[in-house]
Amino acid sequence: MDDGAERIFAALRDVSQSGAPLYLQLKKNIEEAVKRGLIGPGDALPSERDIAAQADISRVTVRKAVQDLVKSGVLVQRHGSGTFVAPRMERVEQSLSRLTSFTEDMARRGMAARSQWLDRGIYTASPDEMMVLGLSASELVSRLSRLRIADETPLAIERATISASVLPDPHEVTSSLYMALGKTGHRPVRAVQRISAVNLGEAEAQLLAVPIGSACLQIERISYLASGKVIEFTKSIYRGDAYDFVAELRLPGPDGQEGEAT
């Protein structure tokens, strides 16, 4: 048995038949082990069977405690790999004055970005999409929905819509949407964003590995070509515990032009 497993089991042996329900005792013991540094970010938990045997409790009890800790963001589960202590979240500072893709933005920070595709396909445009993109009722749109992940931490859910006449095959987008649009001369040069605070529902909280009801930032982005034509309509959800959006403000000069703030 490795040192990590020994530390975890040592933290679980206090689970007994007295006091609170067993799953709550186990949950508290794992939380305390994380807080005290006995098990750290990225450490793998032993299997449900091994934990149950060491703590002398049922696997159902272990599963309930682990699921609660996953919902609260203490643990993360990776399909086919197991359960791990969640990484410590370092906040990402995002400038509101630069129009960049998620992939480009994470690359500048030295973070490994990837996406988990939730949906890619051609659809009939919704009334909102027709209005924003300036489409007729007969025109189709490409929708791209994905979970954006940096250094294996889910940070955002992004749902982008592009006219199908511009992006006839959404599967052509493998990483950066803006890179794909740039290849056909349709990369946006400016955008207007509306940011609002909302609380996460169950499905989105599960995708972002945070508790249900967690505060997050909802961003609607309308992006434009140099000609002024709208090219992209995106609705995104960003983790409130991970992102800070920063805007630079300047004091107008006496003639109404922008000047340096002092």
Score class of each variant (00 low, 15 high):
A160Q: 12
P127L: 01
V132D: 02
E129S: 09
S138N: 13
I157C: 05
A137F: 11
A160F: 05
R146M: 11
S142P: 09
P154Q: 01
S126T: 14
T124W: 08
T153I: 15
M131H: 01
P127T: 02
L147I: 09
S138L: 15
L140M: 13
L144T: 07
T153H: 01
G134Y: 13
S145C: 13
S145E: 14
A137W: 14
L155I: 04
T153L: 13
M130Q: 13
R143D: 04
S145P: 03
D128Y: 00
S136V: 10
R148L: 04
S138I: 15
E139S: 11
R148V: 15
T124K: 05
E158S: 14
L155R: 12
R146D: 10
D128I: 00
T161F: 03
I149K: 00
L144H: 02
S145M: 13
L140F: 13
R159T: 08
I149S: 01
P154W: 04
G134I: 10
T124A: 06
S126Y: 05
S136F: 11
T153S: 07
M131S: 07
T161N: 03
E152M: 00
A156L: 09
S142E: 07
E152S: 10
L135K: 11
L144W: 02
V141L: 04
I149Q: 03
A125P: 05
M130D: 02
E129N: 05
D151Y: 01
A160M: 10
D128A: 06
R148S: 05
V132L: 05
P154E: 02
P127E: 02
V141F: 06
E158L: 12
P127C: 00
T161H: 00
P127H: 02
P127Y: 01
R148G: 07
R148P: 09
A160N: 06
V141K: 06
L155H: 12
E152V: 05
L155Y: 15
I149E: 00
M131G: 04
T161K: 04
A156H: 11
L144Y: 02
D128N: 06
M131Q: 08
S142H: 03
M130S: 09
V132A: 03
P154A: 05
A125F: 09
G134C: 10
I149C: 03
I157A: 06
G134V: 12
D151S: 08
R159V: 07
M130I: 07
V141W: 09
T124C: 04
A156E: 12
S138R: 15
S136D: 10
L155G: 10
G134R: 12
S138V: 15
D128T: 02
E158Y: 11
D151C: 00
E129T: 08
T124P: 00
S126R: 10
A160H: 04
